[in-house]
């Protein structure tokens, strides 16, 4: 473990807590893409199947349980509990255009042709594009609540910090995982325009209003 990965995991944890608090306090999922949250639930489910077969640490196991649990609670909030506030008209991204190519790529490009490893690879590739429905929804609605912007900033920062973690691990541990690094770069690049808007607008107290 290193500081970059620890801060990255905490940023990821914070993002999830911000999202749950926004939903619970405002009793509303307005502006949140249910499709992205479904993709995140798939990402965690397919990545953490080794939850019971390989033990890394208490921290690792507890974080995996937390991420899987909260991802399903979030999907439940959107499609059941706060369903009346779910804005399905603006959450129209065709996720099949993500899942099929990512599934095919995971089948072709992976570290080991085994079921668990192909699912792990699928999860890594899917996570890199899972935020697209949410970013698409923000661009369609033309704006995002500031709390949603904070959620997206924390979520985007987590994988950016993981990039630093991989640089650290390469030089100090000789660890290198090309699949995770390439997907992590794609994932972080997708947030760039949002990061720019967040830093130039939200931090000055303005709301984000993407060109609709």
């Amino acid at each position: 473990m290193n500081i970059f990965r620890l801060v990255g995991d905490m940023s990821h944890l914070l993002a999830i807590i911000i999202l749950l608090m926004k939903m619970w306090k405002s009793r509303s999922v307005a502006g949140i893409s249910g499709k992205s949250q479904i993709l995140f639930a798939i990402v965690f489910t397919t990545r953490y199947l080794d939850l019971f077969t390989s033990f890394v640490s208490i921290y690792n196991t507890s974080m995996k349980v937390f991420f899987i649990g909260t991802s399903y609670v979030t999907v439940y909030f959107i499609y059941q509990h706060f369903k009346p506030t779910y804005d399905s008209n603006h959450d129209t991204f065709r996720v099949e255009f993500l899942i099929v190519p990512v599934g095919g790529l995971a089948f072709l490009v992976n570290h080991e042709f085994s079921l668990l490893e192909i699912l792990w690879t699928f999860s890594i590739y899917l996570e890199s594009v899972a935020i697209l429905p949410q970013l698409f929804m923000v661009s369609k609605t033309g704006e995002a609540e500031s709390i949603t912007s904070h959620y997206l900033f924390a979520l985007g920062s987590y994988r950016a910090l993981y990039l630093l973690n991989w640089i650290y691990r390469y030089y100090f541990e000789g660890f290198f995982d090309l699949i995770a690094v390439v997907a992590g770069c794609v994932q972080t690049i997708l947030y760039c325009d949002f990061f720019y808007l967040y830093i130039t607008k939200v931090l000055k107290g303005k709301k984000i209003s993407l060109p609709a």
Partner: peptide
């Protein structure tokens, strides 16, 4: 790549 045959990152 897996350390000791497993992924040790979240």
């Amino acid at each position: 790549v897996m350390l000791g045959g497993k992924h040790d990152e979240l």
